[in-house]
Design a protein around this nucleic acid. Sequence first.
DNA 1: CACGAGATTGAGAATCAATCTCAGTTTCGA
DNA 2: TCGAAACTGAGATTGATTCTCAATCTCGTG
Lengths: 163, 163
Amino acid sequence: MTQRVSSPSSRGRKAEPPSPSSAARERLSRWIAERGLKATRQRDVIVDTFFSSSGHLSVDELLTKVQARDENIGAATVYRTMKILTDAGLASARHFDDGQTRYEAAMGRHHHDHLICTSCHQIIEFENERIEELQDMVARHHGFQVTRHKLELYGLCKDCQGR
Amino acid sequence: MTQRVSSPSSRGRKAEPPSPSSAARERLSRWIAERGLKATRQRDVIVDTFFSSSGHLSVDELLTKVQARDENIGAATVYRTMKILTDAGLASARHFDDGQTRYEAAMGRHHHDHLICTSCHQIIEFENERIEELQDMVARHHGFQVTRHKLELYGLCKDCQGR
DNA sequence: CACGAGATTGAGAATCAATCTCAGTTTCGA
DNA sequence: TCGAAACTGAGATTGATTCTCAATCTCGTG
């Protein structure tokens, strides 16, 4: 909210640094081309903003950042674009218990779960192979074929426990 | 939707079995009395309907059943009553990925997690002490103090895999 | 048993996130 | 350059849940 993307005082020059998300952007171009979609300025701004951010962004947070760059971009377009990004496997949607969909970059990332601080809303990611194995065991035991799972631990992070 | 509670062809005889929910109802009376709330006919109907059902009921499903007994009871009252039941620790709210809050009876039940069939929407409960332990380990490792967690495995149940 | 303060109720309005509609705009291959 | 088809923004709509409020009900007290 108070966070603002420091607009790089572009003076026409576009330094073109090898952004870490360039691979994602390429993949998106391909995805878009492959199915007859179209590349648009709005999508570029949204995708760019999304990949230059980190963490688990809600649509609202993303919209705010996006509108700091182009105030005319509407919420519907952000929703639509994030859906495309998700379909393309470049972002993944998360539904924590605050009723808002949050997105995180997914470029070749390994599956992981989350620790969520209910006080400061910090989100920590973790992976635990052993837990995954046990989950598979449980599923197998019930004849279930699991396609995805969700493991979320809610509580107080280190910093929020004293207070 | 097409599912209907098979009315047990009651023929007048009501064996009066020591309902498993009577303890819950007593606890609720106490809870209500303790904080100056009031017992009402609507609440009785809702609570009764809830405890005579099994599984993970959505508010909508519960409302339908409730209105079969008293068509004048409104949705708001069902929402309000389930909130009380939850606060009293007699029901617990679950938020699976279908955007509806579902409630299950909680009377002295042990914590458990869920396997959810994305095809027939069957929900299977399970407990796994080992997973809980590992979760605690992960939390500890991050200095987190976990207050609750959510583990849901989505996929196809045994019956839905062939089809 | 009647009273009455305060809790409860139902209906509809209000919220909130997310989706849909639609008329005007933009993209991109021919 | 053209035009079919995809996009876009604004505002309407949906769906779940909560809120508002006037009318009603509950329950301890006299």
